[in-house]
Write a protein that binds this DNA or RNA. Structure first.
Length: 247
DNA sequence: AATTGGTTCAACCGCTTCCTA
DNA sequence: GTAGGAAGCGGTTGAACCAAT
C-alpha cells in the first residue's frame, strides 16, 4: 500500500495564504532549497513537503519570469515539444525563468490550439492527415507510424511514453530518437524550422556542453543531492538529434 | 444584473526514478 | 541485489476569472 503524500490529517490544502508563502520564503532564504520532507515542520507550515516544493518552484522562486510568453519562447516550446514530447521539465530547462507547470499549462491552453488551428497535430507535430491526405487509408498511413512524442499518454500508447518500454530503446526521447530513427521512412514534417535558438536574455549559449552545464547547475543548486536528472541529462547529451541541434 | 459557458492556472495526485543503506 | 524513502515529473482537477448573452 502506498502512503499518501499528506498523510497527516491536519495538513492544509488548497490555495496558499500570504503568511504561508512568507514562511516558506523566509525559511528557504535562511536554509536554502531541499529537504522538502522535513522543511514544512521546520518552517512551521502545515503542508506536505511536496506541496512546499511545488509552491516554491512554480510560484515563489525569485528567478521566475512570470507574464506572457514571448513569440520566440512560444517557438522554442513548440520545437522542443516536437523533439521531447511532454517532457515539460526538460523543456522548462531551456526556458530560463519558466517552470514546467507554466509551460505545460501554456501548451495546453494556447499552443495546442494554435497548432490545431494551423492544421498541425499537436501530438506529433505533423500536418493533420485530414488536411494533408484526404485519402486516409489505414494503419499504413503515416498517422500510425507517426512519431508520437512520448507525451500524450493514453492507455493505448502509454507504453511508448514510458522510459523502459517502447520501440525506441533509448529512453530519451522516445520522441527525439524515434524521430530520427524513423525519419527516413516518414513523410516530411511540416516546416517547423527546428532551429532551437532563441534570443532570451540569460539563456546560456545553446550547445551540447552548455546544455549539460545548465543541468549541472541545477544539480548544484540542489543541495549536493543529485536529483534524477541523470537520465535526462544523459539523454540530452547523447541524443544525436539534440546534440546536433544544440551544437 | 444575472446566468452560462469557456479559459486559465495553481495545486493536487499518483506514479516513476534515484539514492542509500 | 533489493527495499524503502525522498524527490521529481506529468496528468488531472477545480476554483477563479472573463466574455458573451
Amino acid at each position: 500500500m502506498r502512503k499518501p503524500c499528506c498523510e497527516r490529517q491536519e495538513m492544509n490544502k488548497g490555495a496558499w495564504s500570504k503568511q504561508e508563502d512568507q514562511k516558506l520564503i523566509d525559511y528557504i532564504r535562511r536554509h536554502g532549497e531541499g529537504y522538502w520532507r522535513t522543511l514544512p515542520k521546520a518552517a512551521g507550515l502545515l503542508r506536505c513537503g511536496k506541496s512546499c516544493r511545488l509552491r516554491w518552484i512554480n510560484y515563489l522562486r525569485p528567478d521566475l519570469k512570470r507574464g506572457n510568453f514571448a513569440e520566440d519562447e512560444e517557438d522554442l516550446i513548440i520545437k522542443l515539444h516536437a523533439l521531447l514530447g511532454n517532457r515539460w521539465s526538460l523543456i522548462a530547462g531551456r526556458l530560463p525563468g519558466r517552470t514546467d507547470n507554466e509551460i505545460k499549462n501554456y501548451w495546453n491552453s494556447h499552443l495546442r490550439r494554435k497548432l490545431i488551428k494551423m492544421g498541425i497535430d499537436p501530438n506529433n507535430h505533423r500536418l493533420n492527415q485530414t488536411l494533408s491526405r484526404p485519402n486516409n487509408d489505414n494503419s499504413q498511413t503515416f498517422g500510425s507510424s507517426i512519431v508520437s512524442p512520448p507525451a500524450t499518454k493514453t492507455p493505448a500508447n502509454d507504453e511508448t511514453a514510458k522510459p523502459h518500454s517502447g520501440d525506441c530503446n533509448q529512453e530519451v526521447s522516445d520522441g527525439g530518437s524515434c524521430l530520427e530513427d524513423e525519419e527516413s521512412s516518414m513523410p516530411p514534417l511540416p516546416d517547423l524550422n527546428l532551429d532551437l535558438t532563441m534570443t532570451v536574455p540569460n539563456l546560456p549559449e545553446i550547445n551540447g556542453s552548455s546544455t549539460i552545464k545548465l543541468e549541472e547547475q541545477k544539480l548544484h543548486n540542489h543541495h549536493q543531492k543529485k536529483p534524477k536528472l541523470g537520465k535526462d541529462l544523459e539523454v540530452l547529451g547523447s541524443a544525436p538529434i539534440l546534440h546536433d541541434l544544440f551544437r
